[in-house]
Nucleic acid binder design. Structure first.
Length: 878
DNA sequence: CGATCCCGCCACATT
DNA sequence: AATGTGGCGGGATCG
């Protein structure tokens, strides 16, 4: 609807030079009717100023035929855009029709002509949707603003939204780099995954807005802390975060934009009403939402919607509900995201390498986080926010181009990282300060912000070994439908398909080892880094294909929406309102009734989940994202850890701890993180910890089938971390008990755990029978391992998230507990040092006790308040 | 009159 | 302090 108007309107705008472009989509050019302008109306009086009015008049007057023609023309009309050309034409026409009109028009551009949507179209018309990788276009805000004849402020609105989708990235002060839509599908995919985690449940309910809302409310509460603004509700946290960290309000628009998109992606109907979106997006604590705030949120959503509309991703529709008709938007963009490919366009995703040069920096996702980021360290792990700021700076290095792997793997990895990152982010808002990982991350800056996906999916092995599940919540989740959260929605989730190759880990679940450890071990196994790389490569090779495929499929499937398929958007608009699925949309009274679910237990859990995950999607696309991502994991881990254990004995990360931990936690599933430094810079692999180093190698080979026990993580993600994480998981069991761990431990975890005995692995090892149904096994075993599963928190989170997400599936990952006695645990010490080098350039890297402590501290903080709440009671190390 | 959303003040961040 | 960013919401316009 709008479009039409606009288009018509547009023509009028004779405005200066403005190029009215018609660009695109909607067709603009009103004037098409060059034909006779019938002058139906006289334009007599209508407000002079409103050109629009005139137009309307004309239009209405126009015979239907005319209209049709026009429409057709519009539709077919390629975007020509050149503004210039258009303008003249238009003018002419108009002129012809009515002299007067022209004048009017010129004089006053109607409001519509100045709309953000139109402006955005003009903006977009200036750049190729699929720029060659080689060319990097930089956008000067000032320049664009002047060209388009608008204040810079407006450009920010556009750019911020585009940035959230990674169509552009900030390079420097007044500079943005144009990426085009090459990575759009990836971004959307990521958002979808993230969205499922966050909102999946809700969506499932769809109809029940209430639920959603409630949930949101809950979530919000919890999440809130994470995010920015408010001083956290949480306990202590506030301190850190509050000040520095929270400064962040920034990005709200970006974050909001991502969340908004997520809602569409998760929605079955693909229709989202503004009010619902506003409610969901309002982070406020729950219900409180004051009217004013709501109103403001809606305003912002309009801004975002205008840009998204210009991108052809959504269109406006109206949903009719009980109450009446509500404004809503329907997603008309791509719905499924096969691998990475993007749009219609032909770029092969794979093929197109990101532009490297900047790309690294700019590139939206870049999987390759590449070096720079590393160096830079991701500043904050997660936080997007930090990113931004940083981003700009960051731009500096171009990175390595390795990215090739845009493969799904990468993406997956990224996602994982993202997930982790998110958590971390959430927790830490301040990376630097709080960052759990303090080590690594420096606040940096990476631009890359990825949006973290909440979930990570891994290609896991399928070990079908039934029994072990991941200790992590994940398994639990998947397995247990029982979980409240899970139960809810589910539809798609299926996560657990037995056969699926992939597992989703809750972020928490992941563990990484420090490179150092591995190094020793690995190296042994792997001769050199190079070797590592190769191996990793192998692993990838083997794993990837299968896994990826499966995974992808799952994802897609899950949602189910009947909806669309899509193509790049614009085209599809076809649907029209008719489609509208109210169900989703319907909002309902927002917070009214507390929903039933709210049973204490469930409610809590859900909330927690959310929290855990809560993604901040926000993080925009900073290039650095990868790093961030990496960081997150930590958080999650940390959290887990905490949850599990709460005591940190000491800060000293020392090895000692590790050992302890190890001892304590007999079963941690762990992965080893192998640093890819050398060869694969981009990917990192995680091996199950259990396996002995040697095993690792073996594992790969052995596992060939699918089960690769390894997880590949984009280097970027990991790079930053020195450590790994710990699996908090373990905590629950013996370790958990308290005291034993300290934050430090957590950090240490990774190391220690790995080395030490704990050996749980994922999968592969075992053998696996392929088909074993995972689930079944799960339950039974679980009992056994319950502890492993983690702290409730984790579990919850995991469950919540994973469950929903279609993508994840987890499954049977088999965990084996192995002990690896033999495997020597590397000395943490030794390891670390090594690692440090590698990873730790960052400032306080692991080495520092201090750093650790910080981390710990942070972690604690970070640890979601929820966790604390939940578990903490007993300990509170901080 | 409700839906949209432009405009630009102003606070905060970065130089 | 200057300049870049961007939250925010009054109030104008649209429908």
């Amino acid at each position: 609807e709008n479009i039409f108007d606009r288009s018509r309107m547009a023509p009028k705008t004779p405005i200066k030079n403005e190029p009215v472009d018609l660009s695109k989509q909607k067709g603009c050019t009103p004037e098409r009717n060059p034909i006779t302008p019938v002058k139906l109306i006289d334009r007599p009086q209508p407000d002079p100023w409103t050109p629009t009015a005139n137009l309307k008049m004309l239009v209405s007057a126009a015979s239907p035929d005319m209209r049709d023609r026009e429409k057709k023309k519009e539709l077919f009309r390629p975007i020509e855009n050149s503004e210039q050309s258009d303008t003249p034409d238009m003018l002419q026409y108009d002129m012809v029709d009515d002299c007067t009109v022209d004048e009017f028009e010129k004089q006053r551009p109607s409001r519509k002509q100045k709309s953000l949507g139109l402006l955005c179209q003009k903006f977009l018309a200036r750049y190729p949707s699929y720029p060659l990788s080689t060319e990097k276009t930089t956008i000067s805000l000032d320049e664009v603003a002047s060209i388009l004849g608008v204040e810079r402020r407006r450009i920010y609105d556009i750019v911020n939204v585009l940035e959230s989708l990674h169509l552009v990235s900030r390079v420097a002060k007044n500079q943005y780099c144009w990426h085009g839509r090459h990575n759009l599908s990836q971004t959307l995919k990521t958002l979808q995954e993230a969205g499922e985690l966050q909102y999946g449940e809700l969506m499932t309910f769809q109809h029940k807005e209430q639920d959603l809302e409630y949930k949101f409310g809950e979530r919000k509460k919890e999440t809130i802390p994470d995010s920015q603004d408010r001083p956290l509700l949480d306990f202590s946290e506030p301190d850190c975060t509050s000040a520095s960290a929270n400064s962040r309000k920034d990005k709200s628009l970006r974050i909001m934009s991502q969340k908004f998109v997520m809602l569409f992606l998760v929605s079955k109907t693909k229709i989202v009403t503004l009010d619902i979106a506003a409610k969901i997006l309002i982070e406020e604590t729950q219900d409180t939402v004051d009217h004013s705030k709501f109103k403001t949120k809606v305003r912002r959503l309009y801004d975002i919607a205008n840009v998204l509309t210009s991108l052809g991703l959504i269109k406006k529709v109206h949903v009719t509900e009980e109450r009446g008709r509500k404004p809503a938007f329907k997603w008309i963009g791509p719905v499924e995201f096969p691998g990475k490919t993007d749009e219609p366009r032909g770029h092969s995703p794979t093929s197109d390498p990101l532009p490297e040069t900047q790309r690294g920096a700019c590139a939206p996702y870049q999987i390759c986080a590449t070096g720079k980021q590393r160096f830079t360290r991701h500043a904050s792990f997660n936080s997007a926010q930090p990113c931004e700021g940083t981003r700009r700076k960051v731009s500096s290095e171009p990175n390595s181009p390795r990215q090739e792997r845009q493969d799904e793997y990468c993406s997956k990895m990224i996602n994982l990282a993202a997930v982790c990152r998110q958590k971390i982010e959430e927790d830490t808002r301040n990376p630097s300060i709080t960052s759990p990982l303090s080590l690594l991350p420096v606040p940096g800056d990476s631009d890359f912000c990825v949006n973290p996906l909440p979930q990570a999916v891994f290609p896991v092995v399928q070990a079908d070994v039934p029994n072990l599940l991941l200790p992590n919540g994940v398994s639990s989740q998947a397995l247990h439908p029982s979980m409240p959260a899970a139960s809810k929605t589910e539809n798609g989730k299926p996560t657990l398909l037995p056969n699926q190759p992939f597992l989703c880990f809750p972020s928490s679940s992941l563990f990484m080892l420090c490179g150092s450890l591995q190094e020793n071990n690995l190296r042994e196994t792997l001769p050199t880094t190079g070797d590592v790389g190769s191996r990793s490569a192998e692993a990838q090779a083997t794993v990837t294909p299968a896994a990826c495929q499966k995974r992808s499929s799952h994802k897609c499937a899950s949602p189910s929406a009947p909806v669309d398929d899509e193509e790049p958007a614009a085209k599809k608009q076809t649907m029209e309102q008719s489609d509208v699925p109210l169900s989703l949309v319907v909002p309902k009274k927002p917070f009214d009734s507390p929903k039933a679910e709210s049973t204490p237990g469930s409610g809590c859990t859900s909330a927690e989940h959310l929290e855990a995950f809560h993604l901040d999607l926000a993080s925009p696309a900073a290039p650095e994202a990868a790093d961030k991502e990496s960081t997150k994991p930590l958080d999650s881990q940390e959290q887990e850890k905490r949850s599990q254990n709460k005591d940190p004995d000491e800060p000293s990360p020392g090895k000692e701890h590790i050992s302890k931990e190890n001892a304590n936690q007999p079963f941690l599933p762990q992965y080893l993180f192998v640093q890819p430094t050398a060869g694969l810079s981009n990917f990192n692999f995680l091996f199950s910890a259990n396996q002995a180093p040697g095993a690792i190698s073996l594992a790969l080979s052995q596992l060939p089938s699918l089960s690769v026990p390894c997880v590949v993580v984009p280097s970027a993600a990991l790079a930053s971390f020195p450590l790994v994480c710990s699996p908090t998981i373990t905590g629950p069991l013996s370790p958990v008990p308290d005291g034993s761990f300290s934050p430090a431990n957590s950090v240490n975890f990774s190391m220690s755990g790995l080395a030490s005995t704990t050996p749980v692995f994922i999968g592969t090892t075992a053998v696996v029978t392929p088909n074993v149904s995972p689930t079944p096994s799960v339950d039974p075993q679980q009992p056994a391992h319950p502890t492993l599963h983690l702290s409730p928190v984790l579990a919850r989170s995991c469950s919540a998230v994973k469950l929903d997400s279609p993508v994840c599936m987890g499954h049977p990952v088999t965990l084996l507990k192995l002990q690896q006695p033999s495997s020597t645990p590397l000395t943490p010490k030794s390891i670390r040092p090594a690692r440090h080098e590698a990873f730790f350039k960052t400032p306080g890297s692991l080495g520092d006790p201090v750093a650790w402590k910080k981390n710990e501290g942070n972690q604690t903080r970070n640890a979601s308040s929820v966790q604390r709440r939940l578990e903490i009671s007993s300990t509170s190390p901080d």
